[in-house]
């Protein structure tokens, strides 16, 4: 009984700790002045207007963030699919190597990858362009859809493929009617993981943007030394809301515990 109480309290404490800075940032967004205080002084929602509508610095940064996040997540999924499929279908040394190379940027310190990408785009001539940032994020977060799609493919019962074959399905038809529909939730999950992380990414964006444009995280970082403004807190809230919505969607339509590595649920 004591143990149960203890575990409740412990879980609660963890929740508070995780939420604390988020709550603080959110609260600070309500400040009316130019400086951050917590608890907020003279609460107002004016900062939200600044962030979303009136301040071109922020609205442009937000637009860039969204474009980069969506395009790079889409590209990451597009690249991850054939890699994951090759891994599942052949499991040859070559396909394992390819998957390993594709996951490397995510596994190693991002600052090194960011520096390298900076050099790469300086050579290729894409430094400071949005498309370079899109390609960079696609490479950085390729590992995420790669993992989710692989989990999805592994969850397909191989007997399903045999069953389709005995019913007259060619390989292409089997792929279209059996493999693809069963892996769509996993593909979407992978897309969202890449999307949210790209949205929040900072280091790599910093190196490939070369200060030619800015994203929300970059913008916040750039004003880091000038002191925080409550508008930045609004950005933070936006990001938290986007993350919660996206992951709730993944949890709602996909099996989140399974994706995170729990045993398949018995339903």
């Amino acid at each position: 009984m004591l143990l149960r109480l203890f575990s409740r309290v412990f879980l609660g404490l963890c929740a508070i700790m995780v939420a604390l800075p988020i709550v603080v940032v959110s609260g600070a967004a309500l400040n009316s002045g130019r400086t951050m205080f917590f608890p907020p002084r003279e609460p107002t929602l004016a900062r939200f207007g600044e962030f979303f509508i009136t301040e071109p610095v922020w609205t442009q940064a937000l637009a860039n963030s969204i474009v980069i996040a969506f395009c790079s997540a889409f590209l990451a999924v597009l690249l991850a699919w054939p890699v994951a499929f090759g891994l599942w279908a052949n499991n040859s040394r070559a396909s394992r190597l390819l998957a390993g190379l594709g996951s490397m940027p995510f596994a190693l310190p991002p600052i090194v990858f960011g520096v390298g990408l900076g050099f790469l785009w300086a050579f290729a001539g894409g430094l400071g362009t949005l498309w370079a940032a899109i390609l960079s994020h696609a490479a950085l977060f390729l590992a995420l859809p790669l993992v989710t799609i692989s989990i999805g493919l592994q969850s397909i019962d191989r007997a399903h493929l045999d069953a389709a074959a005995t019913m007259g399905a060619t390989r292409a038809v089997t792929f279209r009617t059996v493999v693809l529909p069963q892996t769509i939730p996993y593909t979407i999950s992978g897309f969202f993981f890449a999307l949210v992380l790209s949205f929040n990414e900072f280091i790599v964006t910093f190196f490939v943007s070369a200060s030619a444009y800015s994203t929300v995280t970059l913008q916040i970082f750039n004003s880091l030394r000038n002191g925080y403004t409550p508008t930045m807190a609004v950005a933070a809230i936006t990001f938290i809301v986007v993350s919660v919505v996206v992951f709730s969607a993944v949890a709602r339509w996909g099996d989140l515990p399974r994706l995170m590595g729990a045993e398949p649920s018995k339903t």
Binding site: D157, A159, D162, A164, A165, T166, M167, G168, V178, Q182
Partner: peptide, 20 residues
């Protein structure tokens, strides 16, 4: 090949497609 023989087969796990 199997898809040209088209012998109907019932699998041990039944292999029913969960998305249909």
């Amino acid at each position: 090949p199997a898809h040209k023989r088209r012998f109907g087969m019932v699998f041990q796990s039944f292999a029913l497609f969960p998305h249909l």
